Computed example of a mutant assay.
Amino acid sequence: MFTGIIEDLGEVVALKKEHTNLNITIKSNITSELKIDQSVAHNGVCLTVVHIDKDTYTVTAIKETLDKTALSEIEVGDSVNLERAMKLGDRLDGHIVQGHVDQTAECVSVENKNGSWVFTFDYDSNLQNITIEKGSITVNGVSLTVVNSQINRFSVAIIPYTYEHTTFSSFKKGSKVNLEFDVIGKYVKRLDDLRR
């Protein structure tokens, strides 16, 4: 379980294919605090630490993960939003995030608002996921509030701190991102669908 509050920007330093899996090695300021078998969210994708070496650690993404997330497009040198699992009893500063990506989206516009930015994303509405105005959404692991909710499109407003301390500073039109929709909203929608 995560909160969507990014702790660090890691750097991808190595990628190694192993059958259909991809081993991703990350250099990070939080590596010294990690341990083998620990869950860490990478751009919103919960992955298990399988190896640690000095200031780098390695996680493995299986084919299912690569097929359903934007991790399939990751390259050496890319920055990655990192968050360790939430501790019970800590403040929940973001919202309840599982680290289970529902689908990907494409950035369709970036608007500089003279002190903030508005990013708009399109996603495939055939997968039955929804946003609501002022509801929660996780974009590449970042807990955000939805503005301008539409059937297959939504926007988020980004403050300078978030822009500078997450991968949002690298997004441009056409960037592919991971989405995790609000867990409570998903259950409510599922129950409503079952009643019909």
Rank of each mutant, 00 (worst) to 15 (best):
G141P: 09
L127D: 09
N152I: 06
N126L: 12
N140A: 06
G141Y: 04
I132H: 01
L144V: 11
F119R: 00
S143N: 05
E133R: 04
Q150T: 00
Q128R: 12
S136K: 00
D124V: 10
N152D: 15
I137M: 10
S149H: 06
W117C: 06
T145M: 08
K134H: 12
T120D: 04
V146S: 02
N140T: 11
V142S: 11
F119S: 02
I137S: 07
V147K: 01
L144Y: 02
S125Y: 08
E133M: 08
Q150R: 12
D124Y: 09
T120V: 08
L144K: 00
K134D: 07
T138Y: 06
K134P: 09
V139S: 03
S149D: 13
Q128T: 09
Q128F: 13
I137G: 05
D122P: 03
V118C: 04
I137N: 11
Q128C: 11
D122R: 10
V146D: 03
S136W: 05
N148F: 11
S143L: 12
S136C: 10
S125K: 13
G141Q: 03
V142Y: 08
Y123I: 04
E133W: 08
G115E: 02
T120F: 03
G115W: 01
Y123V: 03
R153V: 03
V139L: 12
N152L: 06
I132L: 08
Q150E: 14
V146N: 02
W117A: 04
T138C: 15
T145L: 12
N148L: 05
W117S: 03
G115P: 04
V146I: 11
I130V: 12
